[in-house]
Amino acid sequence: MKTTLTVNGRPHTLDLDPRVTLLDALRDHLHLTGSKKGCDHGQCGACTVLVDGRRINACLSLAVAHDGDDITTVEGLSEDGKSPLQTAFVRNDGMQCGYCTPGQLCSATAVLREVEAGWPSHVSETLEGPATLTRDELAERMSGNICRCSCYPGINAAILEIAEESTDYAEAAE
């Protein structure tokens, strides 16, 4: 089936078997191997990508069902791999083997937006908002990304650092 995916800003038209997942289309057909396959069943988050700005598990999605969609993978988060979030991961030792990192980065990018949009989480005291990114909030919101090396302290520190910076900017702008 002819399917057009816009990945990291570039349109690609592929001829795909309907069985091909979005993850396999990205990795095997477009050779964007940043997104990882951990479990292939929605249980680990290694395959997290952004579709129209929202995070999803690419392994539980058919590529043909994403015809026309705008997809961002870890390769598209920055030109040089040195976005503030990416550098914060390096600075805070947010990885060991690095297998879960692309998924963590995509997921964290979306978490920051979800918090900004005021989405509550399971641990939010109130549903009324506004949402603030405490350590507990972050752990809950990032629970869909498992790190087998258990680098959670570094991962959390990196994301909190970026969240604080953006709040500082927002406050300075007010």
């Binding site: 929202r54 999803i56 989480s121 629970s143």
Partner: peptide, 23 residues
């Protein structure tokens, strides 16, 4: 939903993960 049916928001937020709930 958050205002008038909070039990539903809470139940949804207690399920799966952020990625899965988006789909």
């Amino acid at each position: 939903i958050r205002r008038d049916y909070p039990v539903l928001s809470r139940a949804l937020l207690a399920g799966a993960s952020g990625q899965l709930r988006n789909k």
